[in-house]
């Protein structure tokens, strides 16, 4: 199942943010969106998820059009969102956070369960009865990933999954994403850590002012110091 964006334009009210984004996340691949703050990475994700209305262009997932549909239908098509700022439900316990929206709509053979999530993030198991609002940032991030996995998505979308986390926690997240990639899950990733994403990612898109200004493989990105310097501030 491939996610494909074609010339997607989106705006917040009167101010346009995306000016024709075209990109592709092939099945089983990890694709990243790079760029400085305010360049349209999160808006691209929100446009895909139906959280920002698309003014023009198309979004397809596995050949099925998703543009213009409400977000819950987009999610049901197999997109699992780990949003910017984690947004766990603070008034639900860890277990409830995982269970509340869990579903296996596409009939995965080995659906995610609370136990499998706890296996992936042993930290969470210890805090199963704690309220989401009382978790540390890293735990919340793990919970947000677990919560998305519990919807048994075909594509996981992570928006700044390692932002603001301690280096140790961060590497734990990266390791986990590596394992998910190994399991064959497609991932669309927004992150600023060029080093880490070039290790994990297969293909990279660099956004500047709502447009894709460069895209290429990890090997290409590593060699393009100019791109890194000019668009990513590295």
């Amino acid at each position: 199942m491939t996610l494909r964006l074609e010339a997607v334009e989106a705006a917040y009210g009167l101010s346009q943010v995306l000016f024709g984004i075209t990109l592709e996340v092939p099945a089983g691949r990890v694709v990243t969106l790079l760029g400085r703050n305010g360049m349209g990475k999160t808006t691209t994700v929100r446009a895909v998820m139906g959280l920002v209305p698309i003014q023009a262009g198309r979004v397809h997932f596995g050949g099925r059009p998703l543009h213009g549909l409400p977000s819950y239908i987009v999610a049901r098509a197999g997109l699992g969102l780990v949003p910017e700022g984690r947004q766990v439900f603070p008034n639900l316990t860890v277990r409830e956070n995982l269970v509340a929206t869990a579903a296996n709509r596409r009939g995965a053979a080995e659906p995610w369960t609370v136990e499998r999530v706890f296996e992936l993030f042993p930290h969470l198991a210890a805090r199963a009865r704690s309220l989401g609002g009382t978790l540390s940032g890293g735990e919340q991030q793990m919970l947000a990933i677990g919560r998305a996995l519990m919807t048994n998505p075909a594509l996981l979308i992570l928006d700044e999954a390692t932002e603001g986390l301690a280096p140790l926690v961060r590497s734990e997240i990266w390791a986990c994403l590596e394992r998910l990639k190994q399991s064959g899950l497609s991932i669309l990733l927004i992150d600023k850590h060029v080093g880490a994403v070039t290790r994990l990612g297969d293909h990279h898109y660099v956004l500047e002012k709502g447009r894709v200004v460069w895209d290429g493989t990890s090997a290409e990105l590593r060699t393009r110091v100019d791109v890194q310097h000019r668009y990513l501030g590295v």
């Binding site: 959280l51 977000s71 819950y72 999610a75 969102l81 439900f89 409830e96 269970v99 509340a100 998305a148």
Partner: peptide
């Protein structure tokens, strides 16, 4: 119950409940 969890989840963040595949309307 799941319904109760969704009700509480919806009270704190309706957008997120929708983005996780629940028909919030």
């Amino acid at each position: 119950t799941r319904l109760g969890m969704l009700i509480r989840a919806g009270a704190s963040n309706r957008t997120m409940v929708g983005a996780l595949g629940v028909n919030i309307r």
